[in-house]
Design a protein around this nucleic acid. Structure first.
Length: 423
RNA sequence: GGAGAGUUGGCAGAGUGGUCGAUUGCGUCGGUCUUGAAAACCGAUGACUGUAACAGGUCCGGGGGUUCGAAUCCCUCACUCUCCGCCA
């Protein structure tokens, strides 16, 4: 959520920057400013009246103590009206605040200066490409056929047990999943991230804190009986660990990592692009999250991006890094790099990681703060990145490493799998 | 699931209707003393909102109510703890 004070003081620049996102209802900005003005006026009225009522109440107390009952009764009689007036003002205030809040959450984060203007994926900027596209023979198979051929993933079984998008990994497939999780977690720990096992069900306040609610409600699975949501990413429980926390400045940077399954309804996604592992309702991911001093967040952002790339390099996967354009960026992000790997049999790029700096957009909702050198409270910056999402890595690994002998396991994973080939 | 007890500032812990935003202790920060440190002593030390700055306002788990006035009384919800039951 954007900070109302910032909007009030930087109206023109806010509008200009939202334009980079191709954000349409720019009139929201002025509506918010007007509502904020109303809010403050109502608040001031209410405060003044409260002050009067407080004074009167104190006088009564004083007079009672002195035994001046009659005088006390006189003031008491005059004080009767406060309650009603205050209630009226409080209702008014609540209404204005609610309106303001409702509008405020509709405003996405302001893009960083480096974010290119644009409306969709075609406007994203390729920052770099790394590695060579493997030359596969004509009879190369897409990963869903490889998965069937070597009997390591069973999509049909998952459909039977749950539904489409819930694959069953078997044998070496399951083992490979576990190997990747362990490899990613070990690497994250080496990079200084503390491993956490968070809950994978979250309450509404957590969903709101990181920005999934209210706008992306339909993307999460909701457990109605207990009013909880299945996490779409570990970012939600990890970042919410610090909700309402005042961090010590010297504790920055706070670096967390977690492996969790992730659940996404992916409503409205169908067709060839979602075949196999390309888009699932349940998948595994290792996530990294950092809470940092505002001065450091963009440096940390680059470090995090480099870290994710180091994983892709270790796995020997050809990848590219995209700087997302304003229109393609997530609602809450100020700057996002997407990492995509080249899936050689499908001949397309698959997104396997997304690294974002949210600046204070999340921390303003979460109230993650620290006391700065000047003694004033400041909001922390939050960042996160996938490191990495497993299914598309697996898909690409299967496709790119296939040969007559079978699937070659990347060297770094062999200590974790205990086998070099899936054949 | 049943019964009972609780939820107060970074922590511990007072406070059962009026000068309580809250006694006190610990912690933290600053100072005195010291070659330095410890101890001792002195002082400071919540958040939010608001203002040019003061002032003012709000917050004692959340929400609602009673009252001129609520941390204190009532209702309700959430959570924690203890005992019982069930159970990976």
């Amino acid at each position: 959520m954007l900070q109302i004070n910032y909007i009030r003081e930087n109206r023109d620049s806010v509008i200009q920057r939202l334009g980079i996102r191709n954000f349409k209802p720019l009139e929201l900005v002025d509506e918010v400013i007007v509502l904020d003005e109303q809010r403050r006026q109502t608040q001031a009225q209410s405060d003044a009246l409260s002050a009067e009522a407080n004074t009167a109440a104190k006088q009564i107390g004083e007079l009672m103590r002195q035994g001046k009952r009659d005088e006390a009764e006189t003031i008491k009689a005059q004080s009767g009206g406060y309650k009603e007036q205050l209630k009226k003002l409080a209702d008014e205030l609540a209404a204005v605040e609610r309106l303001l809040q409702d509008k405020l959450v509709l405003l996405p984060n302001l893009p960083h200066q480096s974010v290119p203007k644009g409306v969709g994926a075609e406007d994203n900027e390729v920052v770099l490409e790394h590695g060579h596209h493997p030359n596969l023979p004509e009879n190369a198979l897409p990963h869903w056929e490889l998965a069937a051929k070597y009997d390591i993933i069973d999509f049909e079984l998952g459909t039977k047990v749950t539904g489409a998008g819930f694959p069953v990994y078997k044998g070496k497939g399951a083992r490979l999943q576990r190997a990747m999780i362990n490899f990613f977690l070990d690497q994250a720990e080496k990079a200084g991230y503390q491993e956490v096992q968070p809950p994978i069900l979250i309450n509404e306040a957590s969903g709101f804190g990181t920005g999934q609610l209210p706008d992306k409600e339909g993307q999460m699975y909701h457990v109605g009986t207990d009013d909880l949501y299945l996490i779409p990413t570990a970012e939600v429980p990890l970042t919410n660990l610090y909700r309402d926390v005042i961090v010590k400045e010297e504790d920055f940077p706070i670096k967390l990592t977690a492996y969790t399954p992730c659940f996404r309804r992916e409503a409205g996604s169908y067709g060839a692009h979602v075949r196999g592992l390309n888009r699932l309702h349940q998948f595994d991911k290792v996530e990294v999250v950092q809470l940092v001093h505002p001065d450091q967040s963009y440096g940390v952002f680059e470090t995090m991006s480099a870290y994710v790339q180091s994983l892709l390099q270790a796995l020997n996967l050809p990848y590219r890094v995209l700087r997302l354009c304003g229109g393609d960026m997530g609602f809450t992000s100020a700057l996002t790099y997407d990492m995509e790997v080249w899936s050689a049999a499908q001949k397309r790029w698959l997104e396997v990681s997304s690294v974002s700096n949210f600046e204070t957009y999340q921390s303003n909702r979460l109230k993650v703060r620290f006391k700065g050198q000047d003694g004033k409270m400041q909001l922390a910056h939050t960042l996160n990145g996938s490191a990495l999402a497993l299914p598309r890595i697996l898909a690409t690994m299967l496709e790119n490493n296939q040969s007559d002998r079978g699937i070659k396991i990347p060297e770094v994973l062999v200590p974790y799998t205990g086998f070099e080939w899936i054949a």
